[in-house]
Simulated scan of single mutants.
Amino acid sequence: MDLRVTGSASPSPFLSARDRFETEYDLSLPVRVRIREDPDERTWTAHPGEYHVLNISRQAATSAMARELALHEFAHMLRNEGGHPSHTQSTEEALFLALSGRTVERRKLAHCYQIANHMKDIYADDITLTLGPTDKLVSFLESGLATALADRPAPPRPGFERISPGSDPEITVVNAAFALALVERHGLADEDHRLYDLAYAAARDAPGVGFESFKRRFRDLADDPDESEYRKTLVSATRTYAVGDPTAAAD
């Protein structure tokens, strides 16, 4: 794999991730890692055509998860090169099919993109999780969910005005469903793990979302769907979340 790192952070985690990735897989196109100074920059991959780009904040690039984040993004690149429907299906097209003629809140529309990203992540991690220890990933999921629960809006009190919006309980439920789906799909933790307690707490905060249904949707995604099958699955998931269409339920 041709890998080049630019920016103010050590290339070591990315080189280590490359070496680990190449024990099982390889990429045809070069990879360019661009380290950004913005601490809020999310880790994401782009595919300009002749190479892949891994964008990552310096904070993430110097964290204990840097190697694992790079492995995850390499897996996205491999899915892209392989033409997997999860990585070739246009999210915008799926949302148009799911929501055409319906009125949807802006925040819920943003959440639908998150659902699509979770489905992509499931397929990327089907690759990543063949490459080594999983303890860091489970801890990462646990920490993220605990943070979201701690930041959820408190019940209003007289004379109290919350300045920051906090985490949205509805998408937190979906995120919790994704976390447990990944754990169960790959047998990463027992049912007495704290992650389950956190997920059930999130589900209680927004009972209308359908936590168990979304967990099954993510966990049971077909390994190798064709384009039509994947499109239907994504349309169903986004429509169910955005408008609560009972005909799109996974049960």
Rank of each mutant, 00 (worst) to 15 (best):
E161F: 12
E105I: 00
H111Y: 05
I122K: 04
L129R: 11
L141I: 06
L141V: 00
V183P: 01
E184A: 15
Y123C: 03
D190R: 12
R185W: 04
G187S: 07
I115H: 02
D125C: 07
H186W: 03
E161C: 09
A124R: 06
G159F: 03
T128I: 12
R157I: 10
V174M: 14
I171A: 01
L149Y: 05
A150I: 05
L129S: 02
L141Y: 09
A124C: 02
L182G: 01
F96G: 10
D135P: 02
G144P: 08
T130Q: 14
L99I: 06
S167T: 15
A154N: 10
I122C: 13
D168P: 02
N175W: 12
S139C: 06
L141C: 03
R185K: 14
I127A: 12
A150E: 09
A150D: 11
D135R: 11
E105R: 05
S143I: 01
R107I: 14
P158L: 11
T130S: 10
A148W: 14
D151C: 07
G187N: 05
G132Y: 14
L180D: 00
D168E: 14
A189Y: 09
G101S: 04
A150G: 15
L188C: 08
L131Y: 04
K108W: 06
V174C: 01
R106V: 11
I163H: 15
C112K: 03
K108P: 01
S167N: 03
D121K: 03
D125N: 15
P133E: 15
E105Y: 07
D151G: 04
A189R: 02
A148T: 10
T103Y: 00
T134R: 15
P133V: 01
F140M: 11
L97T: 15
P153F: 04
D151P: 02
Y113I: 07
M119I: 04
F140Q: 10
E161Y: 02
D168F: 13
R152N: 09
P169V: 09
G187I: 12
T172A: 09
D121C: 01
L99H: 11
S139F: 09
I127L: 13
F160I: 14
T147H: 10
P156R: 08
I171N: 11
S143F: 03
A177E: 03
D135T: 07
L182V: 00
S100C: 14
S143D: 11
P158G: 07
L109W: 14
E170M: 14
T103H: 03
A98E: 09
D126C: 09
T147S: 13
R157L: 15
C112A: 10
T172E: 12
L137T: 11
E184P: 06
V138G: 05
D190Y: 03
L131D: 00
A116Y: 02
S167W: 04
Y123S: 07
A181W: 07
V183W: 01
V104D: 11
F96D: 05
S167F: 05
E184G: 00
P158M: 11
H186K: 07
S143N: 11
A146D: 13
V138A: 02
P153K: 10
P156A: 15
T130M: 06
T172K: 05
M119G: 00
T172Y: 08
G101T: 03
L97D: 15
S139E: 11
P133Y: 14
E142P: 01
E191G: 06
L99A: 08
L145N: 06
I127Y: 07
A124D: 00
V174D: 06
L141R: 01
F178M: 04
I127W: 05
R152T: 14
A181Y: 01
E161P: 00
P158T: 08
G159E: 15
